[in-house]
Amino acid sequence: MRIIAAVDTKSYSDEIMDYVARLAANTWSDLTLLGIQSGNTKVEENLIQAIVRYRNTIFEHEEDAGLYAPVSMTELKETAKGRWEVSSRARKEFSVVIRGGDARKEILAEVAERNADLVILGCTKGIDCIWEGEAYLPQKIARDAPCSVLVIKSARKPDQIVAFLDQTNVSQESLEMINQMVTVNNAGLKIVGLKTPKGVKGDVEKKMVEILKYYNEREIGAWIKLVDSENLEEYVAQSTREGMVALWMGKESILSKIFSRGLIEKLISNTQSSVLLLR
């Protein structure tokens, strides 16, 4: 698995590092710290300082010593116009990439280049969820990235992961990703399924039994809840108050049909905790 943590120099980027470190160590992932700056002629000094801080946090929290090898910022090399990189490999690859230019474009370009599985970003707290100087960046990344996206609004560990799984089309990777979120946060798991006014279809029930068993076999307790599809939007909004919300938004997902792109942006703006979009 490859994780990209997209960062700038602000406190919300600082706050996600502890989480990034734990998740990366738990999943044994290749990890990229992607620093974003506006200029593309030279690396900005304040961004370098921030990334050194983030890098140190990653290595301080590395529970499995030897997973990553340290990198030095003095070895950053310009690999393309406005893109600098330094990387190392121990058991897994650790890299620092700095890209200058439009934040949305640069993050999506790096995601494509590295074929990332998960992008993690922090954002400001409160009603909005923004990057300074970049209106609605987390929302745009969540909307446009081809991979899973985790937007962390609150660094507080969620007590509960509320996973809205589209039972008929859940991928193994997304089940595993939720498994990791539960473990890293030591949180409870609520699996929410959809039902229509006519009830739940037999094949959907069978899938939910399989999902429940999958987690129980990994000694993860899970609560099952069924929600009317017409009340889904309201229930998702309510769930952001209970903990981290995880939505499976794969191409075949019914959720991706119910949740328009605009609604994803609204959800991320209004959430009080964190949102994980699984793809």
Partner: peptide, 9 residues
Amino acid sequence: MEGHIDTSS
């Protein structure tokens, strides 16, 4: 004892 799936209703 009997099972009932928790619903939002």
